[in-house]
Design a protein around this nucleic acid. Structure first.
Lengths: 331, 331
DNA sequence: TTGTAGGCGTTATCAG
DNA sequence: CTGATAACGCCTACAA
């Protein structure tokens, strides 16, 4: 009772050939106006849906796009990826595609390989770029269309990104403008391009104001609570007046640590962060941070990838998709 | 250079028929031991991968499972779904499947329909159940195997869930044991089954202790900041000594509101919540809450669905997959 | 404008 | 144990 109706059934029921039916649906090739309407109507009424598998076999297309998520804990705690999905999902489904999600744990790209080698997707979105990016290298070699969220050196790779450089530059500059002179910077893995980009923005913010960032106050690869604790100690001892965290998870931990050490924010130390996510939404004091529109970003990458897949030209772009939200933590 | 090698190529190169090759790979039917090894080796060396599309066409299977996410803001802010994905992803890929994600915004189930009607998935996971569950109804009618995360009335539907009833009962009981007598309860949409389940657990916790929950202290459908504000006011005025929130997003907002109203937690009001997520991780005071293992839950549903798909029998089950984590907020 | 036939890469059904 | 051959459902030259 549940075997779907096929193009053949439609053809026979209407006394035409399946070629005609196929054409009526796809719009390719000429079909008599009347015939066409008859077919379309029948299809509608009998709820015929072409089998994507069969289409795929014939045209070697899946109408799936692969979205690669980092599966490490650092990333799973950030709402960023989930939010991007909303935008991607909307855009993609408008064009008739669906999203195949694959997680990539550590250095194991076998999941990515599977969906690419098995031809389960027409294109891929990498949701994060690495300094030495095996996934990207692999994709490039494989020849499948792909786009990254995030920046990388290779100009041949199509990249869509929030302008993290500008964002960090602007925030830094604002903080300096508010009177802070000695800002510390806290970031996660230096393998992630985004970490480096923000670092550059940070430096640029200083340059713009006629000075240099203090190198001894820059801490990268701060990826666990122990490091955070020791870094905060150093920051305080050094007499820094402000601290910029590269993400909200980091900032949250900093706040907690500060509380337990009776370091008062913003009195003893100003604080700023990135993402302006729900992670910090209910914290007090409210944390000044750069807010991105993840949904727009998701839409943009997805759109770009589909352009690429469908043979239109697609270019890398940086989205001016942020705003600095000032809150108490820097007052 | 990039056209994949096919089963035919393998067959010809080895001077056997593709039938034999197919058998060697699938293990179905008998093949000479030596022949089989020869084939397997050749495949390995020449990196042959069967085309999933062609397999799909022949066996009418996609090796995709659909995961349906709620796209509303309430849900997108909860790390719950993202975390479940990790478990699902692991389990599913071990069995050779991939995950197709589809978001469902409000009442619009067209996305779900698309992937089912188009036969893009072999089965579906519903990550949330509703009291009047259109998605579930649709899936049931469609005949495709599916499993829900969460509970529903229909015993024919295979359901995998954390034991939210027990979890809430236990927590309530513990709180009562700690001396609280008049607990208020705050929950989100009463359309979500989980809200009702926890409510029942809450009541049961009271019964167990020989009393009844106070109906006037139960607030459901608390879905925006205005309501939260007014509810907190009422709770305080009513002289309740504790507040149980059904999720961390809610609890976060409560904390914030309490702070701005100078209501001290736990002195003026004890607080407990669900999920023990990063949303509250760095809050002070730490919030007592029920912690689930989302990854395990994800694994369990995924495993169950695959059983169902592959014709093994699969039963609904409740996972005793929680623990109550006591923190300062209830001291 | 419409139809025929072959192909996409596998699996499954029969024979040998 | 192995091999033709026919599905699977759709697309697309090439004919008519």
């Amino acid at each position: 009772m549940n075997s779907r109706i096929t193009i053949d059934d439609v053809a026979q029921a209407l006394g035409v050939s399946k070629t005609t039916v196929s054409r009526a649906i796809s719009g390719k090739g000429r079909v008599g106006k009347e015939t066409k309407e008859r077919i379309l109507q029948y299809i509608e009424q009998n709820n015929y849906k072409p089998s994507v598998m069969a289409q795929g076999l014939a045209r070697s297309k899946t109408f799936n796009i692969g979205v690669i998520w980092p599966g490490d804990f650092e990333a799973v705690d950030l709402p960023f990826f989930q939010k991007c999905m909303v935008g991607m999902s909307e855009t993609v489904s408008m064009k008739g595609y669906d999203i195949l999600v694959s997680m990539i744990m550590g250095n194991d790209i076998s999941g990515l390989k599977r969906i690419v080698d098995n031809r389960k997707v027409d294109g891929v979105i990498l949701t994060r770029t690495l300094v030495k990016d095996r996934p990207a290298e692999y994709l490039k070699k494989s020849g499948i269309p792909f786009v990254t969220i995030g920046t990388c050196d290779d100009p041949e790779i199509v990249q869509v990104d929030n302008d993290n450089f500008e964002a960090c530059r602007e925030m830094t500059s604002i903080l300096i403008g508010k009177g802070m002179r000695r800002l510390a910077l806290l970031g996660g893995s230096s393998d992630h391009v985004i970490t480096k980009t923000r670092l550059q923005g940070f430096r640029e913010g200083y340059l713009e104001n006629g000075t240099n960032a203090e190198e001894s106050l820059i801490y990268l690869d701060v990826d666990n609570d122990l490091k955070i604790a020791s870094v905060i100690g150093e920051v305080i001892r050094s007499g820094a007046d402000g601290l910029v965290c590269m993400d909200d998870a980091l900032a949250g931990k900093v706040i907690r640590k500060c509380k337990s050490e009776h370091i008062h924010i913003p009195k003893d130390l100003k604080l700023a962060s990135f993402y302006n996510s729900t992670l910090l939404e209910n914290m007090s004091p409210g944390v000044t941070s750069v807010s991105f529109n993840e949904r727009k970003l998701g839409s943009a990458v997805a759109g770009t990838l589909i352009d690429l897949i469908e043979g239109r030209k697609a270019e890398s772009r940086k989205l001016k998709n942020y705003e600095v939200v000032l809150k108490e933590s820097t007052k």
